[in-house]
């Protein structure tokens, strides 16, 4: 049985694409057959974050318009046997695709894949409607900032109005040092405000920047963010994994860093 997950946020720049890349890669590492679909037509970034940008031949719009079969457009990630990417078109705009067409494509992909991850564009217009059309559940990404949370709240309302069965929250870029000082809303604060189920929290980790630089998702490696993403993947599979203690370890690393930088 396959599951279709849309990664969405409303506000741009909160980490939808990074989350899509890491959740998709993580599920593939957990032996699920996964396809990542970049639905951000005109601004394709998932391929770059995944390090697959040089292998794009056909794209989502080509498949929708029937210029190729979907199998021709899928890029196989050579690092993982079960991971594929369907890139978005760079030179077209979001009106090239309709929600009905997306739904039809996704139903076709359900035959072959365990998980279909849709990277949603920012905003609440056509691109958002296309991305959520065929989805079973949503991962709503937010950061602990007023604007991102406000937009997430709006998105949660729209997902409910569109009868999505399930929405789970990812609080991204949390800085425990700032939370401790009272200068950042805590994970609990954000969950309290948005009142949907929390599926994971990801720390503001510089390793994310490094992994994006290299085009290699960090899910599952020994960084704090890598572990946080892997835990999210396991929770998606239904495992009961306790929340990672983001403060303890970041304190430890900070201390370690302080030792080295003081020399």
């Amino acid at each position: 049985m396959s599951e279709v997950i849309v990664v969405t946020s409303g506000k741009g720049g909160v980490g939808k694409t990074t989350t899509s890349a890491n959740v998709g890669t993580g599920l593939a590492k957990l032996n699920k057959k996964v396809v990542l679909i970049d639905t951000d037509i005109g601004l394709r970034n998932l391929g770059v974050v995944m390090g697959l940008e040089n292998r794009i031949v056909y794209n989502l719009v080509d498949v929708i318009e029937g210029n190729c079969r979907y199998k021709q457009a899928l890029i196989k990630d050579k690092r993982y046997p079960n991971l594929y990417l369907l890139p978005s078109a760079q030179t077209r705009d979001k009106t090239s695709v309709s929600p009905e067409q997306m739904k039809a494509l996704i139903d076709e992909l359900r035959q072959e894949f365990d998980y279909i991850i849709l990277d949603c564009p920012a905003g609440i217009e056509q691109g958002f409607k296309n991305a959520i059309a065929g989805a079973d559940r949503a991962l709503v990404v937010t950061t602990p900032e007023v604007s991102a949370i406000r937009d997430a709240d709006r998105i949660i309302g729209l997902l409910e109005a569109n009868d999505l069965k399930r929405s789970d929250l990812i609080v991204n870029r949390i800085r425990m040092d700032m939370v401790k000082k009272g200068d950042m809303m805590s994970i609990d604060d954000v969950v309290d405000i948005l009142s949907i189920n929390l599926i994971g929290a990801v720390p503001d980790d510089e390793n994310i920047v490094i992994s994006t630089n290299n085009g290699e998702p960090l899910v599952g490696n020994d960084t704090l963010a890598g572990q946080a993403y892997m835990n999210i993947c396991k929770r998606i599979l239904g495992e009961d994994i306790p929340l990672l203690d983001l403060s303890e370890k970041s304190g430890f690393w900070n201390k370690l860093k302080a030792i080295f930088s003081s020399k």
Partner: peptide
Amino acid sequence: MSLFDMFKKKSSGDVAKDRLKLLLVSDR
């Protein structure tokens, strides 16, 4: 933030939470 300020002002995290709560009520 100095110790004096801590007694005087709400932390910015709490300010953010209160502002958001009000904002979202009217948004919703």
